[in-house]
């Protein structure tokens, strides 16, 4: 006899967006701790950081920057498309974003792979014997920060996957686009962090 009563679902798009922004603040502070460590060690080991940065592949870094910038654009376009009730376009643009994110990860995989082949990874014999302490710190931070960023790309993929499925199903639509908008916000954060990582590791020499 007992009957399950569905009480009104509380829907507050403004609230959800504030929530996402707050989450982004906390993400920024997560990376903020790393940026502090980076700046302290850069100050203390200026020359070593200069030398170590030369080891990184600028082309791959630049390519990945371009990929993320374009993907940020496509996800923004996808949101606009959804608001204009062009569901097909929205899905297509979201899929492009998804694929770009995967390409980013593939690039990263090969970039790290080359470093590993050269014996550059935390705790390696090569790093202990051939590198100065400053260079060890540089690569320690490089792997941690780009690794953590890559994890955020994966998290972004999961969120986009949800958004994609919901847009397909029609539960995320022009009247209720919050999930897609939040996925976009999160993706811009991932992009933004990379925009700082790229110069810090690849460009400033």
């Amino acid at each position: 006899m007992s009957q399950v009563i569905q009480h009104d679902e509380h829907y507050d798009p403004e609230g959800s967006k504030i929530g996402m922004w707050l989450f982004i603040f906390s993400e920024l502070l997560l990376f903020g701790g790393l940026f502090i460590i980076y700046s302290v060690y850069r100050y203390l080991n200026h020359d070593a950081f200069h030398m170590a940065a030369g080891e990184l592949n600028l082309t791959v870094g630049a390519l990945n920057t371009l990929i993320l910038l374009v993907s940020s654009m496509t996800i923004a376009m996808s949101t606009t498309a959804l608001q204009k009730k062009q569901k097909g376009t929205a899905i297509l643009l979201l899929e492009i974003t998804f694929i770009l994110a995967i390409i980013f990860l593939i690039n990263k995989y090969f970039e790290w792979g080359v470093k590993f082949d050269h014996g550059i990874f935390p705790g390696s014999e090569y790093m202990k014997e051939e590198m100065s302490q400053g260079e060890v710190l540089f690569f320690g931070l490089y792997f941690v920060m780009t690794g953590l960023h890559a994890l955020h790309i994966v998290a972004g993929l999961v969120i986009m996957g949800f958004a994609l499925a919901r847009v397909h199903k029609g539960t995320v639509h022009a009247g209720r686009p919050t999930l897609l908008e939040n996925a976009g916000l999160y993706w811009h954060l991932v992009d933004l962090i990379w925009i700082f990582l790229f110069p810090l590791f690849y460009l400033i020499t």
């Binding site: 460590i37 302290v40 935390p122 705790g123 302490q133 400053g134 710190l137 320690g140 792997f143 941690v144």
Partner: peptide, 16 residues
């Protein structure tokens, strides 16, 4: 992994 950021043996600073 021994990344070194807080390990004085690898150049890191425990005070940090």
């Amino acid at each position: 992994f021994g990344i070194g950021v807080f390990d004085p043996a690898l150049g890191g600073d425990p005070i940090l």
